[in-house]
Design a protein around this nucleic acid. Structure first.
Length: 330
DNA sequence: AAGACAGTCAACCGCAACTCT
DNA sequence: GAGAGTTGCGGTTGACTGTCT
């Protein structure tokens, strides 16, 4: 034990490889194969450590390496594999012929990670970001969520994940409601944001009731995108407290690459969302039972099965205009 | 034109797992 | 079984390049 790293050997060259060094390495491996990397540099006449030679070969000189831009298919595959495997770059690389783990890692860190963050997806968990840091990026997130047709320029996978932004809005509402209603001393300034028209003498309890009803409506709208406005209004009117009861469906098997997850709303049918679901049962917190206040169940007829593409038509957009996201975030 | 800044990517480092003796 | 040697992996660094001011 305590063996020094091979690269610490005195006098060995570090840094970028020259074309001459590349040639020597290629020549040697072409004639003798890879063999023992530690002895290879001496035998090949290279003033490098074996580790450096191995890296140069596997990441750059290997003949089967595919250079150039990642294709949409490759990008999609990386996204899916990363959702399942995490930062197991070598494992991901084995499924992308001609790509090295280093190349994929770099591409992830410089491109894909950034794209995911922009649409409000945590690159590590592949879930909508719900932490406090999200609030800092919320304005950008909301912009993305409202881009509608513009986001069609993103590839399908990102589009699907951008849809999650809608869910985040719901979760934010839910969290705020929870925050407000659980507190023994409600924050009146915050309450007024939800009911800006409320006069100053509006009693906190009235405002809380308004919030709960608004929350109910938001939830109903999110889960019943094809229901008529009148129907929703009727439902909203019939609710005095709380929203519907939602049931999160069973997750996909862990080793399954399925990107579909199902949200069921009791009595309202099913909405099929597209998400990486390999490792999570809680990706759709906005409708998880523990986040919903229980109350009477609603009774919309029929079953709804839709991708989140339909959500653009949702009245949730009204919320963006009227709901005061900006003020809340500020 | 030049300096500042940001993005990209090849290469390095440290660690852990594996293999050999 | 233990220690030494080797290999592979993931995180990080730093040189290079392009863009902005």
């Amino acid at each position: 034990m305590g063996r020094p790293p091979c690269c610490d050997e005195f006098g060995l060259k570090k840094g970028p490889w020259t074309p001459e060094e590349d040639e020597k390495l290629k020549d040697y491996i072409g004639k003798h194969g890879q063999g023992n990397w530690r002895r290879l540099p001496k035998l090949a006449g290279l003033n490098r450590c074996g580790k450096s030679c191995r890296l140069r070969w596997t990441n750059y000189l290997r003949p089967d390496i595919k250079r150039g831009e990642f294709t949409d298919e490759e990008e999609k595959l990386i996204l899916q594999l990363h959702a399942v495997l995490g930062n197991k770059w070598s494992a991901i690389a084995t499924r992308l012929p001609g790509r090295t783990d280093n190349e994929i890692k770099n591409y992830w860190n410089t491109n894909m990670r950034k794209k995911l963050l922009q649409v409000g997806i945590d690159p590590m968990t592949h879930q909508p970001r719900t932490d406090l840091n999200l609030l800092a990026t919320m304005p950008g997130l909301l912009t993305v969520a409202n881009l509608g047709s513009l986001t069609s320029s993103l590839d399908n996978s990102l589009q699907q994940q951008a849809d999650a932004a809608h869910l985040i809005k719901l979760q934010l509402v839910q969290n705020l409601v929870q925050l407000l209603t659980c507190s023994a001393t409600p924050n009146l300034d915050l309450l007024r944001l939800f009911a800006p028209a409320s006069p100053r003498n509006h009693r906190p309890n009235d405002v809380l009731a308004l919030i709960r009803q608004l929350s109910s409506l938001v939830i109903l709208q999110s889960l019943t995108p094809t229901a008529s406005r009148e129907g929703l209004q009727h439902l909203a009117n019939s609710l005095s407290v709380g929203g519907g009861e939602a049931v999160a469906a069973a997750p996909a098997p862990a080793d399954d690459l399925s990107w579909e997850s199902t949200v069921k709303h009791k009595g309202c049918g099913t909405a099929t969302c597209v998400f990486p679901t390999s490792n999570s049962t809680a990706s759709l917190d906005p409708v998880s039972p523990e986040n919903m206040s229980r109350s009477e169940t609603t009774s919309l007829e029929g079953s709804i099965s839709t991708s989140f593409e339909d959500w653009d038509a949702l009245n949730l957009d009204d919320l963006d205009n009227d709901f005061g996201w900006k003020e809340i975030l500020e």
